[in-house]
């Protein structure tokens, strides 16, 4: 048996084991007294939910918020990054501001954003933009700054205009940085989209989750969390796939799949 197959089988066994432990704990184990549903109940509810239209609609809402917000953040972040990375003066001038806002998560400004924009999809998109733009801008500016000056000078020697140098030399050499930043930002955008529903009352899976909790519907609550986990896995998979597609020419990726 090859290592990959063995690894896959052991992994499957681990998943089954985890489900079994959950089932036992909730039936006869230490959690029998608590309102925790058994694994069987939660998974059945999840499968039932997956056949309802409502679930797919709220999933769509969450995905639209996350993806539109992420795309907007990429546009704004890359533009900012190019502006910051092109000149040492701008880089120094914005450093303190960027460094200050970088670690502050969007949940901090959620109260004021909800107040101004209301519990709308746009509120969610705005929060995603706030949450993802700075990280993308920082990476882009690092990439732009790291562009080989000799390459730029070579381009200029061959009579490329500034716009052409930007498009043909600076952006391609910053693209791996941008790719990494987007791959890291993708899960964040999903998290923020859920937070916008859960705490801001916006549409989507976060809101469904909150309603299940308020209704005291335990199996549904767990089912929603399971669905969010699956959605998160899909999101991660798709974003690294896209990164690999866009950057297939880069040496780092060529090395991985010869």
């Amino acid at each position: 048996m090859s290592t990959t197959v063995r690894r896959f089988l052991v992994g499957c066994f681990g998943v089954l084991l985890a489900i079994a432990v959950w089932q036992l704990a909730s039936m006869i184990g230490p959690l029998a007294e608590s309102p925790m549903p058994s694994a069987g109940e939660a998974i059945t509810t999840m499968l039932q939910l997956l056949t309802t239209v409502d679930l797919w609609l709220s999933t769509l809402d969450t995905l639209v918020i996350a993806v539109v917000g992420l795309l907007a953040a990429i546009v704004v972040g890359v533009a900012l990054g190019i502006a910051i990375g092109s000149s040492p003066l701008v880089m120094h001038a914005t450093r303190v501001i960027v460094e200050f806002f970088k670690p502050i998560p969007p949940i901090v400004v959620l109260p004021i954003v909800v107040l101004v924009l209301g519990p709308t999809p746009f509120m969610g998109i705005f929060l995603v933009i706030i949450g993802c733009t700075i990280a993308i801008a920082i990476q882009t500016s690092a990439g732009v700054f790291d562009t080989d000056p000799v390459r730029k000078a070579t381009g200029e020697t061959f009579g490329l205009s500034r716009a052409e140098v930007l498009r043909r030399i600076v952006l391609p050499s910053a693209l791996p940085y941008i790719g990494t930043a987007v791959r890291v930002a993708a899960p964040t955008s999903l998290i923020v989209a859920v937070v916008a529903g859960l705490l801001g009352g916006g549409p989507g899976l976060g809101q469904s989750l909150l309603q299940a909790q308020l209704a005291g519907n335990q199996p549904e609550l767990f089912a929603y969390v399971l669905i969010l986990g699956l959605l998160g896995l899909v999101f991660q998979g798709v974003s690294s796939l896209v990164e690999r597609r866009v950057l297939h020419w880069h040496p780092q990726f060529r090395k991985e799949n010869p």
Partner: peptide, 19 residues
């Protein structure tokens, strides 16, 4: 044995576990 389970848990937005 445990990595698939761990990766699943990590994929859940941590805030969603609060409820």
């Amino acid at each position: 044995l445990l990595e698939p389970v761990i990766h699943f848990f990590r994929a859940i937005p941590p805030v969603a576990l609060v409820p």
